[in-house]
Simulated scan of single mutants.
Amino acid sequence: MEQDEHTLVVLGAGVMGVGITTLAVGFGLPVTLIDVDEQILDRARRKIRQELKLATLMGALPEDTEPGELRTATSAGSGADASAVIEAVTETAEVKAAVLAEISALVKPGTPVVSNTSSIPIDELADAVARPEDFLGTHFMNPPYLIPMVEVIRGRRTGDAAQAALGSVLTALGRRWLVVADHPGFVTSRVLHPMLNDAIRVVREKTAPPETVDALFEGCLGHRTGPLRTADLIGLDNLADSLRVLHARTGDEGCRPDQLLLDKVQAGHLGRKSGRGFYDY
């Protein structure tokens, strides 16, 4: 499929939905962004304009490509004619399953329906979709327009055609991808999120403040931003949700969200998106 034949639907106008939409529009794809809340969509349109400017300044988008058309809607029915659907709602299995059930019943057979998830097994969500052979997962890292690699998760019932169709979309978005098996957290979150949880525990135990922890990871281990800045970028609420999924599905006590993380979420200090997390923004 040629790039100009892709029509993308993104479900959910939160941080990841906005980031994926920014990437797609910046690479010239028409996108319909769907959310049930019109006020959230209004904020998303403004945020996408800002992120497109930032991505352009950083050289993250092709210079010779006209931005794709952006439409917004509050009904899943607006996505019925999509060539691909990416769900990017909150990291809660029940919420994702409900959204996926609705959209998968509307799109044409053969349309790849994709859950962007950091931790929830794809085969678990596949029980909710109309055609499990058309369903698979991605894990775009934040912000999607700056990170060139995407983790693709193939479920037990995912068909070859769905994987190939998603690959075509990712190529049109200028992304590289690697396919992994379907286990809780897959590769990146299964390794990264417990490590972030441990870094938060180190701060709570007063071994070192966030600045020192991050500086040590940058200077000693070559980590680009450090674990606490990474947690703030992910969103502390999203991190807590992902850790809960991992803990419930693996039994790994290292995935039980640390109390300091829970306290920050309770206080509304969610990281970059709220202006305050382990750092002020």
Rank of each mutant, 00 (worst) to 15 (best):
L260V: 11
D263G: 08
R204D: 12
D42E: 13
P227Q: 07
A161K: 13
T65I: 15
A231R: 05
P143L: 15
R156E: 11
A267M: 00
Q259I: 04
D127A: 13
K206H: 15
L61V: 14
T212C: 06
V150R: 02
G79C: 04
H223C: 09
A128K: 00
D198A: 05
Q39M: 13
R256A: 10
P143H: 14
R156G: 09
E124Q: 11
K53I: 06
V107S: 08
G251N: 07
T111L: 04
I122Q: 03
S115Q: 04
T207P: 06
V95S: 15
L100H: 00
H193M: 10
G268C: 04
E69F: 03
V10Q: 00
A199R: 01
R201L: 03
E218S: 09
T90G: 07
S168L: 04
E51P: 08
L41C: 01
G68L: 03
S118K: 04
I122T: 02
G268E: 07
A55W: 05
A240G: 09
R71Y: 04
T7A: 10
T32I: 01
T117A: 01
R46S: 10
V150A: 00
P210C: 02
G251Y: 06
G254Q: 04
V113F: 05
R156L: 15
G251L: 04
V187K: 00
D42W: 09
T92I: 15
L243V: 14
T117F: 00
T230L: 13
G174F: 03
A126T: 04
T74R: 01
V187L: 04
E51L: 08
P62H: 12
H6F: 04
E124N: 12
R156Q: 14
S104C: 04
T22D: 12
L29P: 01
E253H: 08
D123P: 14
G12N: 03
V265A: 06
D37I: 01
V180P: 10
R201W: 00
P227K: 06
Q266D: 08
A80H: 13
P109N: 14
T171W: 00
E66W: 08
V152K: 00
E66I: 13
S78V: 02
R224K: 09
S83F: 07
P109C: 12
D37F: 03
R176A: 06
V31K: 10
I200L: 08
N197Q: 12
A44P: 00
T90I: 15
S189M: 14
R46M: 07
L70E: 01
M195N: 14
V169N: 00
D64T: 13
P184M: 15
A231I: 06
V36I: 11
L41S: 03
L216H: 06
I153A: 02
D81K: 13
E38G: 13
T90F: 12
R156F: 13
A76S: 06
T250A: 05
E2R: 12
A80R: 13
D81Q: 11
A73T: 01
E211T: 02
E5H: 09
P144K: 02
R276L: 08
E211Y: 01
P148G: 05
M58H: 03
A93H: 10
D123N: 11
D214W: 01
